[in-house]
């Protein structure tokens, strides 16, 4: 359509969404960045201005106190590390469960494949919040799993399943599994069966052919699926709040508490900026994959 539209039309088509995202996506980040260099004060808005006027001349007032605070209180550092650990473990679990599932769908008959794909996507269309909530009923002390195990005589006292790391892993894997399976499937489906046949003809056992041919070829799918799980999981709020520990918070919860409970906008902003710093490389990697996927299809 490069030659289909006038210059003015092209400017409108690209300009309207760009303008919207500048105002409601980019500018907000700049504001967060700016507030993270302020100090709290009792006023509206509850933070110090960046520019002050002394004797008529402007002076820039940068405060590092929010960042200093984050690094002196061990609560924040341990929340960061804990969030990274939870996200990494959940991503690996998703990969371990999702890879064979995606593989089975890619090798299913052409009639069953769309049905299986729909079954994978369908939970994603139902409420995320309610699906996490369902696990409370399953995991709590007098919940379904404990009741079942006790009535079978496997255990005699209920296991503490809720409010543990295990419950958070389950919640994240359960909610994000479709995001792992879909890019993996999109990749595995494109593989050329002739390569595996050639390997078999040359005497490679199936396991070896899988490890030497299928796995390396599916690397872009593995990276895309892992990023789609890892990045949002680091800042996850709902799952750890409903299922997780109360003595160790994830960083998304810390941000929310700083903002809503302590009303400390500069510290909440500094937490957000530090999460972004951690995630900037994964996010850029994901965007590169996404661009190649959408533009390579032509």
């Amino acid at each position: 359509m490069a030659r289909l539209t006038s210059a003015a039309g092209r400017r409108l088509i690209a300009g309207i969404p760009t303008g919207w995202l500048l105002l409601l996506f980019l500018v907000p980040f700049i504001i967060v960045f700016r507030i993270s260099f302020s100090e709290v004060r009792l006023a509206i808005p509850p933070y110090t201005p960046l520019l002050t006027f002394r004797h008529g001349s402007p002076a820039l007032e940068l405060h590092w106190s929010a960042y200093q605070f984050l690094f002196t209180d061990p609560l924040y550092v341990s929340s960061y590390l804990y969030s990274l650990k939870v996200a990494a473990v959940s991503t690996l679990c998703c990969l371990a469960i999702g890879y064979p599932m995606a593989y089975a769908i890619a090798h299913a008959g052409s009639a069953t494949r769309p049905v299986l794909l729909m079954l994978i996507v369908l939970p994603f269309w139902t409420s995320f919040l309610l699906r996490v909530y369902a696990w409370i009923g399953l995991l709590k002390n007098n919940g379904v799993i404990n009741n079942l195990l006790m009535s079978l005589g496997v255990i005699h006292h209920p296991l503490a399943l809720l409010q543990t790391d295990f419950a958070v892993y389950i919640g994240i894997v359960y909610s994000y599994l479709p995001f792992m399976i879909l890019p993996l499937y999109a990749n595995l489906e494109k593989h050329d069966a002739a390569l595996l046949e050639a390997a078999a003809d040359l005497g490679a056992r199936p396991a070896r052919a899988f490890l030497r041919i299928t796995v390396p070829q599916s690397f872009p799918g593995i990276v895309a699926g892992s990023l789609l799980v890892f990045i949002p999981a680091v800042g996850e709020y709902v799952i750890p709040t409903l299922l997780g520990r109360t003595d160790q918070l994830m960083i998304g919860r810390v941000l929310s508490d700083e903002f809503f409970e302590n009303r400390d906008w500069p510290v909440a902003s500094a937490v957000a900026i530090l999460i972004l710093l951690l995630l900037v490389v994964p996010i850029l990697l994901f965007q590169r994959y996404q661009r190649r996927e959408l533009e390579g299809a032509r």
Partner: peptide, 19 residues
């Protein structure tokens, strides 16, 4: 800008929009 909101942790998007 168009792909970033898909993976951006929601707490960050929410905070920045409110501010």
């Amino acid at each position: 800008m168009v792909t970033a909101p898909i993976v951006m942790p929601e707490v960050i998007t929410g905070l920045s929009l409110l501010l």
